[in-house]
């Protein structure tokens, strides 16, 4: 399971992108990258682009959300980075048997109906609700787009989300 400290989970609207390829993959020293996304998994050309862009020594799996639990179990031994594009995809993965004690928010872009948390994270009320539930379920939720100190989620007395330096 992903209780191993060398397993990382990242929510990033852009899935695999420059920051991930150039920084996070070498920094985390992972050997397995799992991209869990229904659209990407259904698009063989997109999977090929990801395979061409990720260094050959890294095992790559592009899976649908429902397949994530199985894919993460199979590669338990390797240091692994899992990327999903959306908080509700992660909620669906949890419902289908996926486990993960720690969640990092990387990039969630601005749009109408979203509130700014940081320059790189904008959340809807529904997403805030989902993150609060992840927290209450005992998971660590953090924002870390770039290297450096992450911001960690806690809940205030009224249940409001609070983000503090970890």
């Amino acid at each position: 399971m992903t209780s191993d400290r060398r397993h990382y989970l990242r929510i990033d609207n852009r899935l695999l992108h420059g920051q991930v390829v150039q920084f996070w993959i070498p920094y985390l020293e992972i050997e397995h990258l799992i991209i869990a996304d229904d659209l990407a998994a259904a698009n063989p050309a997109m999977s090929t682009v990801y395979r061409m862009a990720v260094p050959r020594r890294i095992r790559l799996s592009v899976v649908s959300i429902i397949e994530l639990a199985q894919a993460a179990r199979e590669e338990n031994a390797l240091p692994t980075l899992i990327i999903l594009s959306d908080i509700f995809d992660l909620a669906r993965a949890f419902m289908s048997g996926f486990h993960c004690p720690r969640i990092t928010l990387g990039n969630i872009h601005s749009a109408i109906g979203r509130n700014r948390i940081t320059d790189t994270i904008y959340l809807t009320p529904e997403e805030k609700h989902a993150l609060a539930q992840f927290h209450r379920d005992g998971r660590v939720v953090e924002i870390q787009t770039f290297p450096g100190e992450p911001l960690r989620l806690s809940l205030g007395k009224s249940g409001a989300l609070e983000w503090e330096r970890a």
Binding site: R14, H17, G18, V21, N43, A45, V49, Y50, M52, A53
Partner: peptide
């Protein structure tokens, strides 16, 4: 495109065709 695996590369790759190619 500037970076293999970057968003510009990934999006442009979806628009390739017999007469449209990319170097990242």
């Amino acid at each position: 495109t500037d970076l293999p695996g970057g968003t510009p590369c990934n999006e442009a790759a979806m628009l390739l065709g017999p007469t449209v190619q990319m170097v990242a």
